[in-house]
């Protein structure tokens, strides 16, 4: 029964993702001068830190078979609200940042509770959440607001030098912490395993006596937290807040998760895959930038297309797996019935 030589099929999408990243990177190095500079890679991390954090949160949502369309709007709202609180009330970042994170927790928990208690499709609840958060940003300010708080500026402009001239920002450190925490959460806690179980088969999870309801609300709470954290990181990165920022980011986050090998229907996937999903998107953007003549709008189209391709690849891997199981069962039943007949006849 042991087939240790073969790779479990659940790793395939992840392998495809990592290979795609490596191939794209090699392509960039061959094609464009200056692409091989390590800073190109580190800029992927610096420029996409906020996307990584929110995509990691989204990974849990999608692993459980749900969806959250509100993340982009929440990031924008966090930026606007913190800029407003910092600028107009002179509040200390020590108050503003925890406040933002608390808001994310409350916002996510509310959406999760509505989804769970009223049995409403997640997309409609989070779509309303998205419009609510975007609207609130404009209620606070229709203009972009610059953040002049010294703490934000210091953190935002701080460079952590690695070797040579390459550097990363403080935000990347936050991403690293979030990533480690998320991997621990996903693989070493009951909460994480319950998320996987719900995504695999919610009915079974219920029959196994797992706390399905509580976990689902917690997933949206966690994602609310991640999107406000991403919002904080984003405002540190941009040093300004505006309701129009990061429009359409929900697709970027969902795309990162799907390109990262997580199955859209839930149950299969890895947090680390999502990181590569983000990196691939960043890489596409960088290549388009290096190319110079292509419009940056190709990024959105390429990401959309890639998402669909990955959904397609997943369904092929998934359905061939099912077919294989089905044919195995057919053979099995054929062999059951054949010897059974004479046995009964002789009775």
């Amino acid at each position: 029964m042991k087939r240790s030589w073969s790779i479990d099929r659940k790793f395939w999408p992840l392998l495809i993702t990592v290979s795609l990243f490596v191939l794209l990177y090699i392509y960039g190095i061959i094609q464009y001068r200056g692409f091989s500079s390590p800073q190109v890679f580190f800029n992927l991390l610096v420029d996409n830190a906020f996307l990584m954090i929110t995509s990691i949160g989204m990974t849990f949502v999608i692993l459980s078979g749900g969806i959250d369309l509100s993340v982009g709007a929440v990031i924008a709202f966090t930026g606007v609200l913190s800029a407003w609180l910092l600028n107009h009330f002179g509040l200390s970042p020590a108050i503003v940042i925890p406040l933002m994170l608390l808001m994310g927790v409350v916002f996510g928990a509310t959406m999760g509770a509505i989804i769970e208690f009223f049995k409403v499709q997640p997309f409609i609840v989070t779509l309303a959440g998205m419009f609510f958060a975007r609207g609130m940003s404009f209620v606070i300010s229709t203009q972009a607001q610059t953040i002049s708080d010294p703490f934000y500026r210091t953190i935002g402009l701080y460079r952590i030098h690695l070797w040579g001239k390459s550097f990363i920002s403080a935000n990347v450190v936050i991403v690293a912490i979030v990533l480690i925490a998320a991997i621990y959460l996903a693989h070493f806690t009951r909460f994480g395993r319950t998320v996987y179980a719900i995504g695999g088969n919610e009915q079974s999870a219920l029959l196994m006596g797992l706390p399905v309801r509580r976990t689902k609300i917690l997933i949206y709470t966690l994602n609310g937290f991640c999107s406000t954290l991403a919002g904080v990181v984003f405002s540190i990165y941009m040093l300004s807040g505006h309701g129009l920022y990061v429009s359409g980011l929900e697709l970027d986050a969902i795309a990162s998760v799907v390109i990262g090998g997580t199955q859209l229907t839930g149950g299969v996937g890895y947090v680390i895959g999502t990181v590569f999903g983000v990196l691939i998107q960043g890489l596409i953007q960088t290549i388009i930038m290096f190319q110079g003549t292509l419009s940056s709008w190709w990024t959105k189209i390429a990401v959309g297309a890639l998402t669909l391709i990955f959904i397609g690849v997943q369904s092929i891997i998934y359905s061939s797996k099912r077919k294989r199981m089905a044919s195995a069962q057919r053979v099995a039943t054929a062999t059951t019935t054949a010897p059974a007949a004479p046995a009964t006849a002789g009775d």
Binding site: I67, L69, Q121, F123, G248, E250, L251, D252, I254, L264, S295, W297, W298, T299, K300, I301, V303, G304, A305, T307, L308, I311, G312, S315
Partner: peptide, 25 residues
């Protein structure tokens, strides 16, 4: 392709604006 309607149309919701940008340059 049997993709959930929400996801299938979300792709165009975002990529579609990119297409419109391309058209208007």
């Amino acid at each position: 392709a049997r993709i959930q309607p929400m996801v299938a149309t979300l792709v165009l919701m975002v990529a579609g604006r990119g297409i419109a940008q391309l058209i208007t340059n």
